[in-house]
Amino acid sequence: MSAMKLTLHIWRQRHANDTGTFETHVVDANEHMSFLEMLDVLNQTLIEQKKEPVAFEHDCREGICGACSMVINGRPHGPLGGTTACQLHMRHFQNGDHIWVEPFRAKAFPVIRDLVVDRGSFDRIIQAGGFVSVNTGAAVDGNTIPIEKDLASQSMDAAACIGCGACVAACPNGSAMLFTAAKASHLGLLPQGEVENARRVQAMVHQHDKEGFGRCSNTYACEAECPKEISVSNIARLNRWYLKSSLTSNV
């Protein structure tokens, strides 16, 4: 197990209105640690020095809850494609490296503390229409409507989104189109969700804009940085549906 010494330049910010600045720390790590465990080591040291540890969001640490929200050397979730920060291991860094760690930056994601940002805007986009309007108990048998395997698979591809916000953090426009499109595609591709597609698409896009996210200009940074590798073809699909519902539906 090879030990490594790293210099961390880590963002410290008390609250949303604080300007914030980088703080430099040297951390002893080893190659088997996850990136977050390396931050645990830093925090342990800070606590031993009776200082406040660096706040960062994390929970499942297995790449599925979507809680981690940091930018490592300019890349959301760090240098490894298709990987969340919690699944990024230190063997991808070199002894002596300088690492810059920052929060996700976007107007719609205000910083709460250090690396913790407020992603409540995502919840509100879902609340605007990211659901199928069925009450509990009203369902017919699961096999009543056959669904083409490929369609179900495309829907699942979109549904794999973990709602972490890396797409927004990566986007030079601070746009959440990939997140919105993934959810709209997941539901709209299935016959169960297609019924209210027009209303859903309109409502979700309007909420997206209202939250202060930028507009998509097709840079595709979102797709490249998405830890679940959600495709931008979902955005095209959302665009298509949005256009269609704007022109043809009553909503």
């Binding site: 300019g74 810059w100 920052e102 930056r105 976007a106 840079t219 940074a221």
Partner: peptide, 26 residues
């Protein structure tokens, strides 16, 4: 669009750059 998007971005990263986006697209 560019002005609105710049406002939505809320700051640049200090070091490194994101993958995927071509210079042209940005």
């Amino acid at each position: 669009l560019a002005l609105a998007n710049r406002k939505a971005k809320g700051g640049k990263y200090a070091h490194g750059k994101v993958a995927g986006a071509t210079w042209a697209s940005k």
